[in-house]
């Protein structure tokens, strides 16, 4: 094993750590209060994609257009449910950045487990870092240090 091999490996590991953990300056605007009206029906949320900035106050007004539905927000672990005609509200501070799925939490028919929407809080750094790591991984695969 040549010493240069270790240098390459450490180099890639270091680059990987940098891509994964370097704190990035995220422009922070004044926190706003967003009110989203989210309608649910089997098997969709409308709108299915919501974007806010980190630190914003978010209110989701959940309604249903057919049967009893719920909304569970990944990452924040919050849940509400709604009957048709009975709006329900969920208010929280979007203090975690990233992209989070929200899913129906009340069994509403066959495709219930696939009833999914997403909330994006600030820029989705995980995706960018992941893409960076992917490119690094591809380069590391091409590199000839394994010989």
């Amino acid at each position: 094993m040549r010493p240069s091999k270790y240098i390459f490996i450490s180099g890639f590991l270091l680059a990987g750590l940098l891509v994964a953990f370097t704190p990035l300056p995220v422009p922070r605007n004044e926190p706003m209060h967003h009110i989203f009206h989210v309608d649910s029906r089997s098997f969709a949320f409308t709108p299915a994609e919501i974007k806010v900035d980190r630190g914003d106050l978010v209110t989701i007004e959940l309604t249903s257009s057919d049967v009893v539905h719920g909304l569970y927000l990944d990452g924040y672990e919050l849940e509400i449910s709604t009957d048709p005609g009975q709006t329900n509200q969920l208010t929280f501070t979007a203090d975690r950045a990233g992209s989070f799925r929200f899913r129906c939490s009340v069994t509403c028919g066959d495709l219930h487990p696939f009833m999914i929407g997403k909330l994006q809080v600030g820029p989705n750094l995980l995706l960018w870092r992941g893409a960076g790591l992917a490119i690094l991984a591809a380069l590391a695969g091409v590199w000839k240090f394994h010989q």
Binding site: A134, A137, A138, A140, G141
Partner: peptide, 17 residues
């Protein structure tokens, strides 16, 4: 998921090489 996918890419790239 990110770790698994990038790991898979590294693996594939190495095989390809």
């Amino acid at each position: 998921q990110t770790i698994v996918l990038t790991g898979g890419l590294f693996w594939a790239a190495r095989k390809s090489q």
